[in-house]
Design a protein around this nucleic acid. Structure first.
Lengths: 83, 83
DNA sequence: AGTCATTATGATCTTTAGATCATAGAATCG
DNA sequence: CGATTCTATGATCTAAAGATCATAATGACT
């Protein structure tokens, strides 16, 4: 399951999917990553443009990592963002 | 050229490599991404744990994107970080 | 060595993410 | 339906990112 991300919203989205895939509540993820449920909510919804530090905390809690790569041709980030 | 990242430092590193690959100075990258040379320097050195918003500004300026994925087995982030 | 370009660092100020508490809204399920 | 669990939002406060200016350190090149 690889998710492209070009905006904070994309990442929030990817995080939510991963969290659900692992059957975790925001509160659980929060406690695992040393954050608050409210903060997770905001991150997932792209409300606050999180600090990297924080981002990596939740990525680690979900056992995810990030790959930096040249922009791929085709896919414009994520289809849904167009609507 | 794909670069794994599990810490802000990893990302700073990846950014610096990409910037050099494109023969840009920090000042040029800064102006392209609407930031300051000083800020780019700090990001590349992992001094300040950048906001995602800012991060995406520089990624866009370098025509990079990010992929969120499950942690790969082997490679522990980056070899150099161990020393 | 001396010059020019590039990068690092340090200070101050403003803005904002995140903590924290409270609570409103959804969703799920007996 | 009502109860419970999960998620969103709103307020206040504190810590820290980024702008901005100045300048030091480093690197390249002749």
């Amino acid at each position: 399951m690889k998710q492209l991300a070009r905006t904070p919203k994309d990442i929030g989205h990817a995080i939510r999917e991963a969290r659900k895939g692992q059957r975790l509540s925001q509160a659980e993820l929060a406690s695992r990553s040393g954050l608050w449920q409210e903060t997770i909510s905001k991150i997932e919804n792209g409300v606050a443009s999180t600090k990297m530090e924080t981002l990596f905390d939740v990525l680690a809690a979900l056992d995810l990592e990030i790959q930096v790569q040249p922009r791929s041709k085709g896919a414009p980030s994520s289809m849904e963002d167009l609507f």
